[in-house]
Design a protein around this nucleic acid. Sequence first.
DNA 1: CGCCTACTTGGCATTAACTGCCAGCAAGAC
DNA 2: GTCTTGCTGGCAGTTAATGCCAAGTAGGCG
Lengths: 195, 195
Amino acid sequence: MTTLWERSRQVAVQAILDTAVRLFAEQGYEQTTIAQIAREAGISQRSLFRYFGTKEDLVCGDQEALGELLKRTVEQQPAEMSAWDALRAGFEVILTANHPRERALELSRLIFDTPSLHARYIEKRLRWQAELVPVIRARLGNGPGRPAPDTQAKAIVATVFACIDTATELWAGHDGRIDLADLYDQCLAAVRDHG
Amino acid sequence: MTTLWERSRQVAVQAILDTAVRLFAEQGYEQTTIAQIAREAGISQRSLFRYFGTKEDLVCGDQEALGELLKRTVEQQPAEMSAWDALRAGFEVILTANHPRERALELSRLIFDTPSLHARYIEKRLRWQAELVPVIRARLGNGPGRPAPDTQAKAIVATVFACIDTATELWAGHDGRIDLADLYDQCLAAVRDHG
DNA sequence: CGCCTACTTGGCATTAACTGCCAGCAAGAC
DNA sequence: GTCTTGCTGGCAGTTAATGCCAAGTAGGCG
C-alpha cells in the first residue's frame, strides 16, 4: 500500500543503476569507486549501500529475480518434455524477460571483461542453480544402471548453465550480431552430439 | 642458485599456510583476519601480503600451478585421442598431484561453504578454461555442418569444468567416501549419454 | 675478515569497500 | 495536528590491500 515510498525507491534504484553502469562502461569497473557513483547519483554513500548491499550487486543484482522466473518456467513445461528441452524453454523465456538488447550487451561485456565480476556472477548463479536441481530430477526417467538421479540432475543443470555462459560470452564478443539462442544450441550440440 | 633465501621462503610459506588453514577451519574464513594469521605465524602483515597477494590466495593459491599442469598434460595426449578423453586424462593427473585427501577435503569444504572464496576459486578456474580452449580446438575434427570450432571448444571445456565442479561438490558432500573420478564419469555420462 | 650490493622485511600511511550507530526528517495512520 | 514508522545522511570504525621508506641480512668480492 505504501505508494510514494516504493515509487521513489524504484526511481532512485534506476537512477543509481544508470549512473553506475555508465561510469563502469566509461572507466571500467575497478576504477570506479562507490564514492563517485554516489556523488554523481546525488545520494549518500550510506544510502547507496542500503539499496545495493555490495558493489557487485550494481551489476548482477537482478539475478535472483531471473532465477525465480527460470525455475517457474521450467516447472510449468509439460511433464513428458525432457529435462534438456524444459531447460531450453526456460532459457528462451529469460531471453525475452531480460534487459533491452543494448543494456544486456553492455552488462555482458562488463561482466565478461572483469574477472572478479564474472566470478561473482557465476557464484550468485550457483545459488539458485541448486534450486533447479529438484525440478530437473523429477523429470528424469530413473532407469536402472544410471547414475544416482541427483548426480544426473546436478550435472545436467551445471552443463546447461555452462553452455548459457559460453553462448553469452560469444554473443557479447560478436556485439550481439549472432542470435543468442542459436549460439546456445550450437554449444549444446557440441557437447551432446557425438561423432 | 637456490640458497637460504629460497629455502627459508618455502618454510615460511608452509608455516603461514598451515596457520591460516587451521584458523580458517577453527573459526571460519570471514572471521579470521589477516592480522591474526600474521601474528600467529610470527610474521608482519606486510610480509604476509608479499607471500600471498590476497587473503583468498591462502586457500586457492596453488591453483595456478595446477592449471599449468592441466594444460601441459592435455597437450601431451596422443593426437588421435578425442578432446573429451584428453581432458579426462588431464583431470586424472591433477587428482594425483593435488593435496593429500584430508587436506583437499578440508579445502574443498572451505571453498564451497564460503561465497567469496568460491568466487575467487571460480575466477582462477576461468583462467585455466581460457587457456585450454586453443589446445582443445586443435584437437577437433572440423567437419562440415558443425558449429565453429571455437564455439565447440569453448562449450566442451566449459562443460568439462562444470562436471568437475559438480563432482567435487558431491565428493566433498560425501566426505570423500565416493571416488572423485567415478563421480566425474557419472556426471559426464549424465550429460553425454542420450536416451 | 670487512665491505658492498641485492634483496627482504617491517612499520607507517593511505585507499576502498563495507558496517554500526545516532540524529534528523518526511510519509502515513489516527 | 500529533504520533509513529521508517528512510536518510553523516560519522566513526573495521578489514583487505598497496606504496613508500628505513633497517636488516644473505652472498659475492677484494
